[in-house]
């Protein structure tokens, strides 16, 4: 039953495919071809992305992510998020789990909107194709306007999600939830040992820890 529930949506889609084969075979064949092509691409990319995420989860300490991409990271954080997004790294849904993991590690919402937005809208290879078919003025203007819009959306969403956080999402944390103040009790799954918590190093003095904690609050 549990499996049925988890896979309800994919099963429904399979049924639609079957129905489509009966009423409109041409479209069904086209659709199946597209899905198969994307499936091959995903089967190649997705496992690697998740292992990268796992490595990041284990090795990159939370305070570093907070420092590089957190609220206080300022212009440099925004620039880093933007550059990470423009690298040639596949379709947007590859970036969702990465952004989620970074947010849990303390990256700011603004920077993650910038990251996802430039990933989707301002990728370098994509801009090349755009210039070729729609011209430089079109591409340049869209680039500037999109970047501005992303910044505004990021700032607005940061305000909104700070005022009324998505509690349901925070509870459903798939990996050790390490957001300050929430989910601490359930964060010890997935093979992460307590000693690996980056912001509680054994050699750290109490004043250091206090400073760390006050950092977390900001």
């Amino acid at each position: 039953m549990k499996i049925l529930k988890t896979y309800l949506a994919p099963i429904l889609i399979a049924l639609i495919f079957i129905a489509l084969t009966v009423v409109w075979p041409d479209a069904a064949v086209r659709s199946a071809q597209v899905t198969w092509d994307y499936f091959k691409e995903m089967a190649l990319i997705m496992p690697a992305i998740f292992v990268l995420m796992g490595l990041m989860e284990i090795w990159i300490p939370k305070d570093k992510i907070q420092q590089w991409l957190g609220k206080q990271s300022g212009f440099r954080g925004a620039a880093l998020a933007f550059v990470m997004g423009t690298l040639p790294t596949g379709p947007l849904y590859v970036a969702f789990p990465m952004a989620a993991s970074l947010i849990r590690k303390g990256a700011s919402i603004t920077n993650m909107i910038l990251f996802l937005g430039s990933w989707a809208a301002l990728k370098i290879p994509q801009l090349m194709v755009e210039i070729k078919f729609l011209g430089l003025p079109f591409t340049a203007l869209r680039f500037v306007l999109t970047l501005t819009a992303l910044l505004i959306i990021g700032l607005v969403m940061d305000k909104i999600l700070h005022k009324s956080p998505d509690l349901e999402w925070q509870k459903s944390a798939p990996d050790p939830a390490r957001m300050p103040g929430i989910g601490m009790g359930m964060g010890m799954k997935a093979g992460v040992k307590p000693g690996m918590k980056p912001d509680m190093k054994p050699g750290m003095s109490t004043t250091d820890q206090k400073e760390k904690q006050s950092d977390n609050q900001t």
Partner: peptide, 12 residues
């Protein structure tokens, strides 16, 4: 730790 990373990856 590398094994732990793979474990996290598999679960996710």
């Amino acid at each position: 730790k590398t094994a732990a990373a793979f474990k996290i990856a598999g679960k996710a």
